[in-house]
Nucleic acid binder design. Structure first.
Length: 477
RNA sequence: GGCUCCAUAGUCUAGUGGCCUAGGACGUUGGCCUCUCACGCCGAUAACAUGGGUUCGAGUCCCAUUGGAGUCACCA
């Protein structure tokens, strides 16, 4: 039994988007499940689309998420180089071999001629014009230095069938297949060609990729056949959509791993969520660590239909991961989001304790804590509360006593502050809420806050608490 | 438009002919808890696209229709 070898072959055209990450994830998991190897290959045969830094994003993201490849440009391996543009001399040799065997041919057609070809069923199709050039003429034009491409010579009849592990048997009429270009006029191979050569040379026997290749796979298989090479196993995957009509795209800014991280999502949640988009473990498990994912993953759980990316469900999963962080880990991760002016006077540990269970993404922190910096005049109708039976008049009566109580609190912590407020309620013979609600409003000017009156008071500190109380009392007159 | 593929609630999904008066989750929503909010807990909500077959029996098999996706580049 030969060892399973899967690969992730992105092109460095920008961000590593979620669909690509998921492909990498599944490829990794499948390889590891079967004691196989996971290989990274950079497909940069289109020099025009090369984006500076894109390769580094790929390396970084893969390493960060734990998708460590066994072979790749930056980690080496026995089948290098792992960057397609560095393998160019190989391709021409193989293309020429195909020309020799009649599976490919030189084409000298001009752009104008190609464009003048009649459209059949809404698409232009190359007419095999140059296939019929004599050997002598080809040799002559090559010698003369004419620009040329090399095209694959597709059979005109019959059909090609292959088995896909998720979609089953796929059959395409050979007459549907165009004589695709293998070698471009700049001497570079097209993806369609390089991909097959490289996969074979690198010993890739399992190809996992997006469904966009499902219908061009017969062309690749014909190439394998022409060389007499063994065809790999195919696993195509459904797309991840933004909505029912649109694929998740790089341009939306919400589709890349880096953007999600910037929006305050945890890598564990992202991986967990995308694993579930298009795949399910068959039981009801949803929250899974990387190790559990590895244990449960199976290609039989891959779905056939497109799935829509739901940021809400991702946020829910994210909140689960946030809640299980240790206070220390949470504080450390939250630091970049806490860097606003409001933090410098407040206790970071206390702040974190209050918000950890109240956010789904780290990006929500700023809004949740804005009241720490912003405190000004607010509408006194906020004191109105049916359930606690409070209003501005009640506040006017209670607040001065609250202030006096707080003045005498020696140990400024939640426990003592809460006790002081409850004590006040008892002294007045009223319900706790009748004191707590106005106190909280007076300290924050907000109907909803990440913590109760005493917790907020602890956070604000004695000086600021008393200052705000005074201000709010003045505001009532 | 041709070809290929897909089709369970708003969304992600379980379901491989009887265990399905369709299960889980997100969302939405009612309640409990509660110093507001959130967490947590309990409950509700909502789906087999349509029409024909096959079968004793169909979400599950077949066909058609409808809807959707992918593809048809000197892009990958």
């Amino acid at each position: 039994m030969t060892q399973l070898r899967t690969r992730f072959a992105p092109s460095p055209t920008g961000y590593l988007h979620i669909g690509g990450l998921r492909t990498a994830l599944y490829s990794y998991l499948y390889a590891k499940k079967n004691n196989g190897k996971f290989i990274l290959r950079i497909e940069d045969t289109d020099q025009g689309r090369y984006v500076e830094g894109a390769v580094d994003i790929i390396y970084r993201t893969l390493h960060e998420t734990g998708l460590n490849y066994d072979e790749g440009p930056d980690v080496g391996g026995d089948y290098g180089p792992y960057i397609q543009s560095q393998r160019t001399n190989e391709y021409m040799k193989y293309a020429e071999q195909l020309v020799e065997s009649g599976h490919a041919y030189y084409c000298f057609c001009s752009e104008e001629r190609l464009e003048s070809l009649p459209a059949v069923n809404g698409a232009r199709r190359y007419d095999k014009h140059c296939l019929h050039l004599s050997k002598e003429e080809v040799a002559m034009r090559l010698e003369r230095g004419d620009k040329f491409v090399i095209r694959q010579n597709m059979p005109t009849s019959g059909s090609t069938t292959y088995h896909d592990a998720v979609y089953g048997d796929i059959t395409i009429e050979n007459s549907e297949l165009e004589d695709q270009i293998l070698i471009k006029s700049d001497g570079m191979p097209t993806y369609n060609f390089a991909n097959v050569i490289d996969d074979h040379l690198m010993g890739i026997n399992c190809v996992m990729r997006g469904i966009e290749y499902l219908s061009s796979t017969p062309k690749y298989n014909l190439l394998y056949d022409a060389f007499g090479w063994e065809r790999p196993m195919y696993i195509h995957m459904p797309p991840i959509m933004k909505d029912a009509q649109h694929k998740l795209s790089k341009r939306n800014g919400d589709a890349s791993y880096e953007d999600l991280i910037a929006k305050g999502f945890l890598k564990e949640a992202i991986i967990n969520y995308i694993a579930l988009l298009g795949w399910s473990p068959k039981d009801d498990t949803e929250k899974m660590s990387f190790d559990e994912l590895l244990a449960k993953f199976d290609i039989s759980g891959i779905n056939k239909s497109p799935s829509i990316f739901d940021p809400l469900k991702l946020a829910w999963l994210n909140s689960l991961y946030i809640k299980e962080m240790t206070p220390e880990a949470f504080a450390e991760y939250a630091t970049p989001w806490l860097n606003g002016c409001y933090l410098k006077n407040f206790d970071k540990t206390l702040v974190c304790k209050l918000i950890q269970s109240r956010i789904e993404t780290f990006a929500e922190i700023e809004e949740k804590l804005r009241f720490l910096a912003d405190f000004g005049a607010f509408d006194n109708s906020l004191y109105d509360n049916q359930k606690q039976k409070t209003n501005a008049d009640v506040a006017k009566e209670i607040l001065p006593s609250v202030k006096e109580k707080f003045k005498n609190v020696e140990q400024w912590d939640n426990e003592h502050l809460y006790a002081a407020l409850v004590e006040l309620a008892q002294e007045k013979g009223i319900k706790n809420g009748k004191v707590l609600w106005p106190a909280r409003i007076a300290l924050t000017g907000l109907a909803a806050t990440p913590g109760g009156a005493s917790e907020i008071a602890e956070l604000l500190g004695k000086e600021e608490t008393l200052r705000r109380l005074e201000q709010s009392i003045a505001n009532l007159n």
